[in-house]
Design a protein around this nucleic acid. Structure first.
Lengths: 342, 342
DNA sequence: TTCAATCGGTTAACCGTTTCACTTATATTA
DNA sequence: TAATATAAGTGAAACGGTTAACCGATTGAA
């Protein structure tokens, strides 16, 4: 029981050639029911488990897919603090395992290192989360490995993509806040220059302002990295201005949570004195005090679809590119207050 | 550039045998500096990357380690909602990659399926997070693969283990609450029967009560699964009792966050009317309103040490078992109030 | 009756490494 | 000077699968 049986051991015990065992396993060739049963029985008895590395070496598919979670700040494990990523990862892992594939994770950027990893491990496919401007897109493409981008605004339409309509989502959200009577609405986000997603959301925000005849001033824009702590800092900055801001649209729930915490520490009450709206719909947004109104995106669905797309492409290398836009949903809780229109 | 160079291609281009290239790469044999440089140059030019699957097949070490994150409820991805796990995973991934290994994740229990995975992929080692009573420990042991258990109270001392002193930590925490003047202290936790960690913490809690001459009544014990939602439910249950509870010790930050949210919804103010103390020291506990006082455990350190231990063992299969107990630290924030002693 | 197709299975090459055993040339020692 | 050691490199056999090509025995059709 301790030792490792190879396909040849099984073959010997079943009195057939190793090829036969292989065919029984893969079903790629017809084997008589009798022999089949005999082989299966031996496999059962020996507890034989085929070696996927050997399989990958010989055949084509390693049944290993890579997931890249971006690392915004070098050396930080930031991405694992935002449950957006962990939830996404969880759904990817789940969908992947159900299909008999395995997930190799890397919290890294798309660099030469990662390209090497793809080849070192012969990854069957790759899911890349987040937006970068990477100088490596073309090299990645040269590898000719199936790729699905999640939440990325990559210029060239080379890879499959799953995302939401960030611009529209943020437009709706901002419009919602304005309809609640707020006219002085701040925008708290990650870096707009560097992050395509943030940029789209910012555009949505501005469009909503414009549509409602509100000037958008730079004084209402608060950029930082996406983190709890940034939220706190932005809250402080907002508290110090005298622009009469009554609501702030955050581009991430963790920013919003940070904002609420920051306001709380300043003695500014949410939503009585200032309203906050988030983005993502993380589970924890349900349990803040007050509950966070937020634009909920289908995080798990993103992961599932990414996996499905990727595996489809692995099965059919000639598959044409797919771009999928998922739906979002505003969930109203208690962090936005109806303001008396001035 | 598009094609894949093998070690033999490199060898041919450098005018040496493939064995030489292999030795240059591994350094397991002396190769003249001149030849070495020539080989290295070709590798550089061709962009040759060795195939780790082939390497694993031939040699011993696949440089792949498996991380098992438990799945408390079947079909749920719960574990990816609790940032305790994602932070741990992040630190494991980071430490692992720095050492040239890769991480295969599985959100699953330790079942036959996972044992198969270990063999299918020839995992070099495995890190198992969380506590189970698994019927598969002995089979896992038979596989003779290095294993590090994190936060597990496995009866048999077969595997390396990293943990904190849960009993003592919870003792301190409870004692702290009592010293703050609370005498009627509830305990909110996951299943004490099924989860060794919870059990230890419960023991610590009871010991602190006893030490302070307080009876521990079952009426003060609130068990459920570890989740935000459980926290809310427990808060409701507490609100309905008339046992005069003034503080609650939670065995997880997410439980504590749920509790605070639950109390808030009931109109019970934290900490004015009831105090809450958490466990874990997740980043988000800094940003709750009020800030959560909690017992902080060195989550990232746990991950790092687990990886170090595992890789040490991989390097030295005869290494003797190590059990490491890490330090915790109480971090005081604003969710516990000094009660006037009655 | 004969030829071709089909069925069930085998043989052996191959995937890309590592590594053991061996060679050759040079340096060292007795 | 003969014997031995060492250094640098080579050849080829694994590792554990897959799969193309082949083969003998039936079966079916002409």
């Amino acid at each position: 029981m301790k030792e490792r049986y190879t396909i040849r051991d099984v073959a010997a015990l079943a009195g057939v050639s190793n090829a036969t065992v292989s065919y029984v396993l893969s079903g790629k060739k017809k084997i008589s029911e009798e022999t089949r049963q005999r082989v299966l029985k031996v496999i059962e008895e020996t507890g034989f488990v085929p070696d996927l590395n050997a399989r990958g070496l010989s055949g084509k598919d390693t049944r290993l897919i890579g997931v890249v979670i971006p690392q915004t700040e070098p050396g930080s494990k930031l991405m694992f603090h935002n449950t957006f990523y962990s939830q996404l990862l969880g759904s990817i892992e789940f969908a992947t395992r159900r299909r008999g594939y395995h997930v190799l994770i890397s919290a890294t950027d798309m660099t030469q290192d990662y390209l090497n990893l793809i080849r070192e491990r012969n990854l069957a496919g790759v899911i890349i989360v987040g937006t970068y401007e990477s100088r490596f897109w073309d090299r990645l493409r040269e590898l000719e490995v199936p790729v699905v981008l999640v939440d990325s605004y990559c210029k060239n339409d080379w890879f499959h993509a799953i995302r939401i309509d960030d611009e529209y989502a943020c437009f709706c959200e901002t419009d919602y806040v304005i309809r609640k009577g707020h006219r002085r609405v701040a925008f708290a986000s990650g870096s707009i220059k560097e992050d395509g997603v943030m940029q789209k959301r910012y555009n949505g925000y501005r469009r909503a302002l414009t549509k409602n005849g509100i000037d958008c001033s730079d004084a209402f824009l608060f950029e930082d990295v996406v983190s709890y702590e940034s939220g706190v800092k932005i809250a402080e900055r907002i508290a110090q201005t005298d622009t009469g801001i009554t609501a702030v649209v955050a581009t991430a729930d963790i920013l919003a949570v940070g904002l609420m915490s920051g306001f709380y520490r300043q003695g500014i009450r949410v939503p009585e004195e200032i309203s906050v709206i988030g983005f993502d719909g993380l589970e924890e947004s349900k349990y803040t005090t007050p509950g966070l109104t937020t634009m909920q995106q289908p995080i798990s669905r993103k992961g599932e679809r990414a996996v499905e797309l990727l595996l489809d492409n692995i099965g059919d290398p000639k598959m044409e590119r797919v771009e999928e836009v998922l739906e979002v949903k505003l969930v109203e809780r208690d962090s936005v207050r109806t303001a008396e229109s001035t």
